[in-house]
Amino acid sequence: MAHVSALSEKDKQSIEELRSRLSDELKEVPSYSDDYSLLRWLIGWDYKIDLIVPKLKRTLNTLSALKLNQVDFSSIEKVTDYVNSTCNAMEYYPGGLVGYDKEGNVVSIQPLTKADPKSLLPTNRMSLSLINRIAESEGVMSLIRANERRLNKKLGVVLICDMDGFSTDMLWMPGVKLYLGLIRMLQDLFPDSIRKIYVIRAPSAVQVAYNMVHPILAKQTQQKVEFLGSDWKEKLQEVISPDVLFEHWGGTRSAPTPFGHIRMGGKVPKELHYNAKNNPEEPTSKLLTALSVPARSSQKVTVKVDKAGSHLKWFFRVTSGDISFSVVHSEGKVMRPALRLTTEWVPEWDELTCDLVGEYHLVFDNTHGKLWSKEIKYRIQVIAPKA
C-alpha cells in the first residue's frame, strides 16, 4: 500500500488554500488543519477545491455542533467506551475497533451479517443511530491522526467485513436503503479514509449485496476492496499481527470470548423497542402542528430565544419517507447538523442548550425529494433557564 510522506508543491499549495478559505471553521476544529487531514480531502475529491470547501465546511460544522471535537478519542478503549455509552442497544450494532495493522492503520471488524435491522430500527430514533456512527468514525479519524503524527505518513482504516452466514434473505429493502444512505453520509463526511477493505467468509450469494453497494462507493474505495478466499486467516496475518486479532478472526489475542469486545449484534429484545408510553417527550396529538414541505424545497420554523441557557426542544414525525432536519442560528452558526431522518419506526425528539440568544431556525429540508411533499407534525418548545 503506497504511503504519502513527502508532499508535492501542488499538495502544499492546495492545502494552504483550504486552510485560508476555511480558517474560521478550522479554528473551531483545529485537529483537521494538519497536512494529512487536508490531503485526504484533496485526494477524495480530485483536488477540486471549489467542490471541497463546502463539503469540508459541512464536516467541520457537524463535528463542532455535535461537540465531537471536544471528546477524548485518544485510545481505542476511549473510542469504544464513548460509542457504547451513547445508545442503550449498542451491543446489537455489530462491529468495533481491534487495534492497528503492521503499518499503523486502524483496524475495524464489521460482522455485517449479525445485524438484525427489523428489530434494530424500532429501537432508537434515527438521529441517535446516525450520530453514533459519526462519533465512531471521528474517533477512528482521531486515532489515525495521532499515528500519522507519530509515524509521519498518511494512514487510514482497514475494514474486515465478515460475511459469515450471509443469505439473500437478509436483504430487507428498508434496511438496505438505510445502510446505503449511511455509507453515503460517512463517505461525504470522511473522504479518503479507507486504506483497505477485506471481505472474508463470503458465500457466492454475497455478490447480490455487493452489486448494490459497489456503485455508491468512492472510486478510490472500489479499488481497495479485496475478497479473500479460504486462506483469509493467513492473508490477514500478513498485514495484522495475530496478537491484535481475536480468536474468531484467526488471531491469538486472549479474551473471555472468541470475539473479545467486538459487538456481535443479534435480535434486539422487544423490551428495548420504542414505546410512546415510556417517553415523557411524546406530546398528545393536540399539541402537534402540521407542516407540509413540497418536493425540491424546504421549510423553516423560527423561534426566538431571549435568554442564554434556554433549552430548545423539538419533537416531530414525518408521515412517510424521510426529511433532512437541522437547527441553525440566525447568525449562520449550525447548532444541529443536517441529517436525513425517517420516523417510520421511532419519532424524532431532542433538545439543545442555547448559548446564543436570537432566532433559531429549525429547517425541514425536502430538496432531495423529486415528486412527493412530506407532511410533518411537530412540537417546538423554548424553556427558559431556571432562575
Rank of each mutant, 00 (worst) to 15 (best):
A2F: 11
S5H: 12
S8A: 11
E9M: 13
K10V: 12
E16S: 10
R21I: 06
L22N: 15
D24R: 14
E28K: 15
P30Q: 14
S31F: 13
L39Y: 02
R40N: 11
L42E: 10
W45D: 15
I49K: 04
D50I: 08
K55I: 03
L56K: 00
R58D: 13
N61F: 03
S64N: 15
D72G: 07
S74T: 13
I76H: 04
K78I: 07
D81Q: 15
S85L: 00
E91V: 06
P94E: 06
G95T: 05
V98A: 03
I109D: 01
P117V: 09
P117D: 03
R125I: 07
M126K: 06
S127K: 02
S129K: 05
N132I: 01
R133A: 14
S137A: 15
M141W: 05
I144E: 00
R150H: 13
K153L: 03
M163F: 13
M163E: 04
G165L: 09
S167F: 05
P174M: 01
G175V: 08
Y179F: 10
I183F: 03
S193D: 04
R195V: 02
I200G: 03
A202P: 03
P203K: 08
V206I: 10
Q207Y: 06
Y210K: 03
Y210A: 11
M212W: 04
H214K: 15
P215I: 08
L217S: 04
L217E: 09
Q222T: 07
W232M: 06
L236M: 09
L236N: 06
Q237K: 13
V239N: 12
S241L: 06
V244L: 09
H248P: 02
R253C: 04
A255C: 10
F259S: 08
F259D: 13
G260L: 02
H261F: 11
R263S: 14
K267G: 00
P269K: 07
L272P: 01
L272C: 02
N279Y: 02
E281K: 12
E282S: 14
P283Q: 11
S292G: 04
P294L: 02
V301T: 08
K304A: 08
V305L: 08
D306K: 12
A308K: 11
S310D: 01
H311G: 07
L312W: 12
T319F: 06
T319N: 12
S320Y: 10
V328F: 00
V328A: 08
V328T: 12
K333T: 15
M335C: 15
R340K: 10
D350A: 05
D350K: 00
L352A: 06
T353R: 08
C354W: 04
C354M: 11
D355V: 11
E359R: 09
E359T: 10
N366Q: 05
T367R: 15
H368Q: 14
G369D: 09
I376Q: 08
R379A: 13
I380F: 09
K386G: 14
